[in-house]
């Protein structure tokens, strides 16, 4: 299909054994690195379209790979991590990773995340003017939000929060990233604000606020806006 190049960084050969055929079957070109130094060299030299990074590497902490890579590239990085390691996930995202996938994962889920990350990398340059997802429309030029054609009244803060999330469809945003974007860096740790505002926003925009579809909770990490399309 696209021929986009994906660099897999993982020291477990068994993982590569199924990832490679699955990604290749999806039309990606797969390269592989099994250690951090090798990975950084590959990112610098081959400029892949996306990096799939296992955080548990033998020679260096996976997080420092992100940190160092971010000094010279904006390549999307998707992290492979364990479910019980929230702190590690948040740290990786705050250091500049684009998303994470919990191990063990179904291949479909992984492919969806890869697509979202790749798309976001492409679209981030273009200004977002109009978003439509699951019956919700956001008109950025006129600052209007409507569900199924009926306008929704949002406070300025709620609107900012919604656009911050909707600007990264399908991607996880950490609490800290959202708070910094909407409230400013001084409020980076005021997670309780965020809970309240997310609740209000869901009440206004979700069809069933008890079972949110547009803004999903990534427990312990942050929120993820629905994928567009």
């Amino acid at each position: 299909m696209t021929g986009q190049r994906i660099l897999i960084v993982d020291d477990e050969p068994q993982i590569l054994r199924f990832l490679r055929p699955a990604l290749e079957a999806s039309g990606y070109v797969v390269t592989h690195a099994s250690a951090a130094h090798e990975a950084l060299r590959a990112i610098a030299n081959t400029a892949p379209d996306l990096v799939l990074l296992d955080l548990g590497l033998p020679d260096m902490d996976g997080k420092s790979v992100i940190e160092q890579a971010r000094q010279f590239t904006r390549v999307p990085i998707v992290v492979l991590s364990a479910r019980d390691r929230e702190a590690e996930k948040i740290a990786a995202l705050d250091l500049g990773a684009d998303d994470y996938v919990e191990k063990p994962f179904a291949i479909g889920e992984l492919l969806a995340r890869l697509r979202a990350a790749l798309r976001h990398a492409k679209s981030s340059a273009a200004a977002m003017t109009r978003i439509e997802v699951d019956g919700l429309t956001i008109d950025a030029e006129r600052r209007l939000v409507a569900r199924d054609g009926a306008p929704i009244k949002l406070t300025p803060r709620e609107y900012d929060l919604l656009t911050a999330l909707a600007g990264n469809p399908g991607r996880v945003m950490t609490h800290g990233q959202i708070l910094t974007a909407v409230w400013g860096p001084a409020h980076k740790n005021d997670t309780q604000y965020l809970r309240v505002f997310i609740g209000q926003l869901r009440n206004k925009i979700e069809r069933d606020p008890g079972r949110p579809v547009l803004i999903r909770t990534e427990s312990g990490v942050g929120y993820r806006f629905a994928e567009i399309g």
Partner: peptide, 20 residues
């Protein structure tokens, strides 16, 4: 890690087989 890697491989391989 020891428990998860085999599980990740099995799940990944099975879902890959189903899909592709």
């Amino acid at each position: 890690h020891d428990l998860r890697t085999p599980l990740a491989t099995i799940t990944g391989a099975v879902t890959t087989l189903r899909k592709f």
